Simulated scan of single mutants.
Amino acid sequence: MTDELASRLQPIVAAAVTTAGFDLDSLEVQRAGRRQLVKVVVDSDDGVGLDEVAEVSRTVSAALDENEHVLASAYTLEVTSPGLDRPLTQQRHWRRARYRLVKITPVEGSAYLARVGHAGKQRVRVLAEGRIKDVHYQSVAKAVVEVEFKQPPADDLKVLADDADHTAAATEKEESK
Rank of each mutant, 00 (worst) to 15 (best):
T2L: 13
A141Q: 07
R95Y: 04
D43C: 04
S176N: 15
L77K: 01
G83I: 15
L64P: 01
Q36K: 14
E174V: 10
S73W: 15
R34S: 07
K177G: 11
K121N: 08
R131E: 09
A169Q: 01
P82K: 05
E172L: 13
K142D: 06
S26K: 09
L84Q: 14
S26A: 12
V42M: 02
V38C: 03
L101T: 12
R92P: 15
D162R: 12
V102N: 04
S110F: 14
L9W: 08
K158G: 13
A164Y: 15
A63S: 07
V60M: 02
P82S: 01
M1N: 14
G130W: 13
T59Q: 11
T59W: 00
A114N: 06
I12Y: 00
R125Y: 12
I12K: 00
A119C: 15
T167M: 11
Q151N: 13
V41K: 14
R31E: 05
L113E: 03
L64I: 03
R35H: 04
R31D: 07
R35K: 07
R115Y: 00
D43S: 05
L9R: 03
D163W: 12
Y112N: 07
R115N: 00
V40D: 00
D134M: 14
R34P: 01
Q90D: 00
E174Q: 00
L113W: 01
T171G: 06
T171N: 11
V42S: 01
V60W: 00
P106K: 06
